[in-house]
Design a protein around this nucleic acid. Structure first.
Length: 862
RNA sequence: GGAUGCUUAGCUCAGCGGGAGAGCAUCGCCCUUACAAGGCGGGGGUCGCAGGUUCGAACCCUGUAGCAUCCACCA
């Protein structure tokens, strides 16, 4: 027997272990079923899971559990990501607290620490997955650094290299001076920072003239190789070709002309620093300038900078500007707000800097994606609009810098001959007496990009999982990693398997705090899902987080809504408790027989079928908010507020009528539980097990099916009249200061909505006597389609007339509306027939109602 | 500079071509034997603004304002 109150803790206890032990999460046990597959977006082993993970994985779990019920053999493959930079930064930070650097430990020693870290956080993540109730297949769990994935990574690298799609080159890359590694373009976060725009006067050699050049990064002036103006700029025509003096170090620089320079920006004169600016780098290539690096890997000034050597870049900037000012070459300093690149991980200001890195040539790979998206074999985005995000990015893509100067990650399978320096790229290591391996590791996304197929045994295409479950059916992820992950999986998958990695990608938004701000450590506004679970239970959290937003839209974490989710579950819990009590221990479920149903039974069955159909279609299109809201209305209004209450009467009659009611209560209750189960597996399992005739687990049950035979509009129309009567009386009492449970006498004429409805009226409207008469006089009349009801209370005729007049006004305005629409020739001619018919019917009914009402008013006036 | 999204009840949000909805908050009445973490009944919105399409627009189109996010540029 269920407890009086739903207690999440008691309900959740032990269930997950039971499911795991029962192999309910394992794929491939019944291969006669059609396959359905998805992979988890592998969480980083950097820390605890947050609400975003909770939402993402719950959505996947809902899909997984739903598809299982629908008869699919579902594989939901779990795993974690080594998260190169992020994890290494965390491990280094921890070491720093212990007073150790990674260099103290050496590569081997450091990696040992990193693996220890990984084990610790993998354990935490496992605990959290368990708490969340994720129905993942543990027998297939993977890690991006495990042997299988590492092999796939090497294979991909070597293949792309041999195809000329991976190359090594000296380029300007984004350098994170804190983490001391190169970054890819999308790992840079641009922020509008306040900065200074320094205007310096450069003397022109051999003249008494000078030219003013503006810069935001004076410290890079030691690496300048020229000053450029636009060839059409009238201000500088006579100076082009002359030399100017670099005020930083007194060296002579050529003053040159190139159309790249924007005449209207700054002073129209620009310094060229090839080793520290991508545009200057391009200019330098054109004019064969030397590339002079002036910063080291920690953004300190190097030997090219004279007395400034060893200074931090900002220290140097300050000192240098001071010096130039003293020498009279500073014209002005302008405060500006400009966009500055920061490292996504360390937040350090990124230094564009020349370095030798490995790149993926993106154009050919991106083109394949663009081509595929024009065909029916494309990746379908849900919601559709996110496809544009991908396409635009793919159309303007730049080469991907994949090497990172880190230790934690897949080491690049490139080897250099110790003597000749010749490069060897190979999946297997060569004789290490002759070769040394490249020190760098790959961008963490390089391996994540292979996740959907490398986890299934690829490059061994004979692997049974790969054959059965790839391409995967869908992927669920946030819009914030479309570039990082989704796009890269697509192009790698297309290139290597000629298949899309997933047929559909379901994009969700971010979880924000209650004020709409992004949750972040610095704001301290993060919510730990585990705390929420402690307070409200995991089912309430899951329900809230997957039903309170629209696909692709951000949502706010509102604690009251979690509470109200729990209250809803408590509502269902208690309904189930009631049903359980009614059925008793000896009840044996029977199939519903249509011909045995009373009007109220037929009505709830009608509504149930409509609900099953609607909910199913919303589930299929991943509109979980809408699915849950359809179900909510059914549960609250149709079932709990009406049928469940009404059932008390038929049950009291006993006999076959009561037995049929039990059958219907059982059927509806069970279907409700099954429909909400994918959202809230724990509480529904508990309720399911409390019902008679249950199997070992709710996970053995198929999804409710829509049965047309139970559609019955007539029954629902009749019950609706009954509901109106009850509501009218309740409302009547409320507005006349009559206690809700005060008894009133009722007369219905000329016939009741359906046989036996009087008993319901008596009980739910608290009538102490009830009669059906051909004709009635006096009292408080209420008019319905096909019948009239009178509350036989003594009443002030003026008050009564007022009420009836009000009713009349409502009816008249309804009639006016219908008449207006129907007298519009366009409507009658062009609107769908059903609409027109419906409107005509309404008009007729309302006219009848009005006629009766007017008669009533006349009678009373007499 | 380009793109996308949002603007609906006091708050948070659904709905996205045929009569304005939910949760919370609010007001009134009820400890009625599933549920007081409840029940019943109510109040509250010219759906940002302006045009247009349509028989019909919160919903489609155009423009416009505000907010948010993403991309690009910034010597």
């Amino acid at each position: 027997m269920l407890e009086k109150h739903y207690d999440p803790k008691q309900v959740e206890d032990g269930k997950y272990d039971k499911w795991v032990k029962g192999n309910y999460f394992q794929a491939g046990l019944d291969r006669s079923k059609p396959p359905f597959s998805l992979v988890i977006p592998p969480p980083n082993v950097t820390g605890k899971l947050h609400l975003g993970h909770a939402m993402d994985t719950t959505l996947e779990d809902i899909i997984t559990r739903y598809k299982r019920m629908k008869g699919f053999d579902v594989l939901w493959l779990p795993g974690m990501d080594h998260a190169g930079i992020a994890t290494q930064a965390k491990v280094e930070a921890k070491l720093r607290e212990e007073g150790v650097t990674r260099y103290d430990l050496g590569r081997e020693g450091f990696l040992k620490k990193a693996w220890e870290w990984k084990e610790e956080y993998a354990h935490t993540i496992h605990e959290q997955w368990k708490k969340m109730g994720l129905s993942i297949d543990y027998s297939r769990e993977r890690f991006t650094l495990d042997e299988g994935l590492s092999k796939a990574v090497r294979h991909v690298f070597v293949t792309l290299y041999n195809e000329g799609l991976i190359y090594q080159g000296e380029r300007i890359t984004n350098w994170d001076p804190e983490l001391k590694t190169a970054l890819s373009n999308i790992e840079i976060v641009h922020k509008d920072d306040e900065g200074e725009f320094f205007y310096f006067r450069y003397d022109v050699v051999g003249t008494d003239r000078s030219i003013v050049v503006a810069t935001t990064r004076p410290e890079t002036m030691f690496g300048d190789t020229a000053v450029f103006v636009n060839p059409k700029d009238p201000r500088y025509q006579d100076l082009i070709g002359k030399k100017v003096i670099n005020p930083a170090n007194g060296e002579e620089l050529p003053l040159m002309a190139d159309s790249y320079v924007d005449v209207s920006f700054g002073t129209g004169a620009m310094k060229c620093t090839p080793a520290h600016d991508p545009n200057d780098f391009n200019l330098a290539k054109k004019y064969h300038f030397p590339l002079i690096k002036v910063l080291d890997e920690t953004a300190h000034m190097n030997e090219k900078c004279g007395i400034y050597q060893g200074m931090d870049r900002y220290e140097c900037r300050k000192a240098l500007v001071e010096k130039i000012k003293e020498e009279g070459h500073l014209v002005k300093i302008e405060k500006i707000v400009h966009s500055v690149g920061h490292s996504e991980r360390s937040d350090a200001v990124v230094e564009p800097m020349l370095s030798k890195q490995w790149f993926v040539k993106m154009k050919p790979l991106a083109d394949k994606v663009l081509e595929r998206q024009k065909t029916s074999g494309k990746v379908e985005f849900v919601p559709k609009r996110f496809e544009k995000v991908l396409l635009r990015w793919m159309s303007n893509i730049e080469d991907w810098c994949i090497s990172r100067q880190l230790w934690w990650g897949h080491r690049i399978p490139a080897y250099y001959h110790k003597e000749t320096g010749e490069v060897l790229v190979s999946e297997e290591a060569p004789d290490m007496n002759l070769y040394v391996q490249d020190e760098d590791v790959l961008d963490t996304w390089f391996s994540s990009a292979l996740w959907p197929f490398a986890t299934m045994g690829w490059p061994n295409t004979e692997n049974p999982d790969f054959q059965r479950y790839f391409p995967t059916s869908c992927l669920v992820t946030g819009y914030d990693i479309i570039f990082f992950w989704v796009s890269r999986m697509i192009f790698q998958s297309l290139h290597f398997t000629d298949e899309v990695p997933f047929k559909q990608v379901v994009i969700h938004g971010l979880v924000r705090d209650s004020l709409g701000r992004k949750m972040s450590k610095s704001l301290g506004n993060g919510i730990d899902p585990m705390d929420v679970i402690d307070h409200y239970g995991v089912d309430a959290l899951r329900y809230f987080i997957t039903t309170n937003s629209t696909p692709g839209m951000d949502m706010r974490y509102i604690e009251e809504k979690v509470a109200s989710s729990e209250a809803y579950l408590n509502k269902i819990w208690n309904a189930c408790r009631y049903v359980e009590g009614v059925l008793g221990e000896n009840y044996t479920p029977r199939a519903i027989e249509k011909k045995k149903l009373g009007t109220l039974d037929a009505d709830i069955m009608n509504r149930l079928e409509k609900t099953i159909k609607k909910v199913g279609s919303k589930m299929d299109s991943y509109e979980f908010g809408q699915a849950s809201s359809v179900l909510y209305d059914f549960v609250y209004d149709d079932f709990c507020s009406n049928y469940l209450e009404f059932s008390k009467i038929s049950l009291s009659h006993g006999g076959e009528e009561a037995e049929v009611t039990k059958d219907v209560l059982y059927k509806v209750m069970k279907d409700i539980i099954l429909m909400i189960y994918p959202y809230t597996p724990f509480v529904t399992e508990e309720m399911y097990l409390s019902l008679p005739g249950h199997r070992d687990s709710i996970m053995c049950e198929p999804y409710p099916t829509y049965e047309k035979q139970f559609l019955n509009k007539k029954a629902s129309d009749q019950v609706q009249i009954l509901q109106s009567m009850i509501r009218d009386i309740r409302n009547y009492k409320s507005s006349n200061n009559i206690a809700p449970n005060a008894k009133v006498r009722l007369v219905v004429s000329p016939k009741e909505p359906f046989p036996g409805s009087g008993e319901y009226l008596s009980r739910f409207a608290f009538a102490n006597s009830y009669a059906v008469k051909k004709e009635i006089l006096g009292g408080n009349p209420f008019i319905y389609p096909g019948c009239e009801m009178v509350v036989e209370e003594d009443v002030d005729p003026t008050v009564l007339l007022g009420r009836l007049e009000k009713q009349k006004e409502v009816l008249e305005s309804e009639i006016a509306r219908s008449t207006k629409i129907l007298s519009n020739p366009g409507f009658v001619a062009k609107a769908p027939k059903e609409k027109v018919e419906l409107e005509r019917e309404k008009l007729k009914n309302n006219n009848d109602l009005l006629k009766n009402l007017l008669d009533k008013i006349e009678q009373i006036k007499k």
